[in-house]
Design a protein around this nucleic acid. Structure first.
Lengths: 328, 328
DNA sequence: AAGACTTATACTCATATCCAGTATAATATA
DNA sequence: TATATTATACTGGATATGAGTATAAGTCTT
């Protein structure tokens, strides 16, 4: 890809240090997540086509604290939870220009804030980028209508019969064809399958994000370079994490109803959750306590407001919690 | 690339490639694991005080393939499974010299080979470095005899009563005091607790690994810099992984008995496994198939030899498997 | 004001999973 | 021949999990 592009992308977020003759440049890429109501959101820049990234600075004690400081300075968002995702240095990921760049990606959770308006940053539903991942109202029609035929064609194009069968099985397993069930954690694997099958615009080398067409919309909004892959990694990690780690609360306001909490989990998991079981697990584990107040804007019977018991966080953070999201 | 670079598996580990004026140096650190009989082993160099590391080279398509090539050339070990662990760039991790170094650590599984004798590399039981992690014969006495008093003193030294209580609880939870149960996955947390409590020699800044004393032996063999922390990360990751991913087979010879497989799992988990349940799960999932042969050197009734069904690997690698290791 | 509708909250039940214990078969060794 | 060691098979019980149903307490519509 064209170096000029690359610079411009980050005109707003400060440019990464250019690689010197001997050394290697390092940059941080952040997947910042918030949830508003029932929408899982991710912070993007550059007309929603890029994840925020910034140079690695040596001024900080650790990578993590460096990222934290950088994000909080740029967006004024208080970061609740930060976790390293993956480090990339693939030679072909960005063409010649990026050969000497190491990208360290992070997942960060925050409460959405109107702030961060500066730098043309915006919060977008992550299902804009992965429309096939939202199964809260059942499997999205586009899977049967567009992805399945596309994957079928790709499978048929394999060299021999064994390879064809392998491709079909892989596609069927990942996308839950033939009632195989939907495993919401396989976000990255699904994206990479579609990529391999040529259904993702980014897969066409050197192509700049194409203008939106109907078909393109079905395979999700593109991003520059491999940013969509990094986003997929972040979503997958978060979906896995919420099952045994009380990180959901980092995304909630101070006071919330149990249904709000459930909606938040559903937004992340992309799956409906059984209400009675959800409540049973939450209360059983003593993760929350009543505030004594009631929420009036439920539209029905007022709901009790709860607060996360920060006290348990320390212990539960290491021991783990449970949420009723079926594995496969 | 220059072979001379890469060669030495770093005879003198201290200095990674010197950072240039503008750039940053990157290095790879590998936690290579094998299992012999009932001993979980890790490949070390430098008189068993360091993990193998090497420079990051730009010649490879990806970080992962770079690591693979490097390890296989250096040790002649076929790497079965490779996974990225974590990327460190902590400013204080190695003193001033390493300020500009980014370390990318990897976990690699292999079948142990007498090879790799070159470069003073050796295979050591990882319980030499973490003697408190081996609970196959029950909790090691050193926990009650040495660690518990040490942790108790550390807790008492906290500022106020609340902090004291917090420390006590954390220690009790991590080490399973008062019958809280042992969670084998918390390897890193336990190491860091001991580090924080000043019970780990590496915690004393600038101290070179002290000569072995009785007490030092109880807190495990030291390593240089933060290598022991990286090893702890690798062990923790592997212990978590074997529960839902069929990676154990990467450590087994082609043909094996079910008891050998169980011993391997026990070696990694540091916990005994219930034999009937273990066998049921393995066979139920059709992970293995009989070879038809029998092993005579069991000492008792000859055992059937099994072989891993590589066919399932592809699917199971994404869907997951189960092993009967109790979580906590 | 009545009825419909939405949401909160509580309870029950069947099933799957998992843990643990026990029994028996086949071989080596004393 | 007796004993120890290992392989292999079977059985019961506690617990977790998934799904369904019922009732209470409000709002909204007509």
């Amino acid at each position: 890809m064209n170096p000029a592009d690359d610079i411009k992308l980050r005109a707003d977020m400060r440019s990464a240090a250019p690689p010197s003759a001997n050394g290697i440049a390092a940059e941080l890429i952040a997947v910042l997540v918030a949830v508003t109501g029932s929408a899982p959101r991710v912070l993007t820049i550059q007309d929603r086509r890029a994840l925020p990234s910034g140079p690695f600075e040596l001024a900080h004690r650790s990578l993590q604290s460096g990222l934290r400081a950088w994000v909080e300075r740029q967006t004024r968002l208080p970061l609740g939870y930060v976790e390293q995702l993956y480090t990339f240095a693939d030679r072909d990921r960005a063409g010649a220009a990026a050969q000497h760049v190491i990208s360290i990606s992070y997942l960060g959770l925050t409460r959405e804030q109107p702030a961060s308006g500066e730098y043309e940053a915006s919060w977008d539903s992550w299902y804009d980028y992965f429309p096939w991942e939202d199964h809260r109202l059942g499997a999205p029609p586009l899977i049967e209508e567009i992805l399945r035929p596309g994957l079928k064609a790709w499978a048929a194009a394999a060299a021999d019969r064994t390879a064809q069968r392998g491709r079909r099985q892989r596609a069927a397993f990942l996308f839950g064809f033939d009632d195989q069930g939907w495993n919401e954690e396989l976000v990255l694997q699904r994206y990479e399958l579609l990529y391999e099958a040529g259904l993702i615009p980014e897969a066409i080398r050197g192509s700049s994000p194409a203008p939106a067409s109907d078909k393109a919309a079905a395979t999700g909004k593109p991003m520059i370079l491999d940013h969509r892959r990094i986003l997929a990694t972040g979503i997958a990690r978060l979906r896995a994490k919420i099952k045994y780690h009380p990180v959901v609360f980092e995304l909630m306001p101070d006071k919330f109803t149990l249904l709000q909490l459930q909606r938040c989990v559903e937004a992340l998991a992309g799956k409906p959750v059984h209400k009675p079981n959800f409540r049973r697990l939450i209360e059983q584990q003593e993760l929350v306590e009543e505030t004594g107040e009631l929420s009036q804007d439920t539209g029905g019977r007022p709901a009790k407001l709860f607060r996360f018991r920060r006290a348990v966080f320390a212990e539960r953070a290491i021991s783990g919690t449970k949420l009723p999201i079926t594995g496969a």
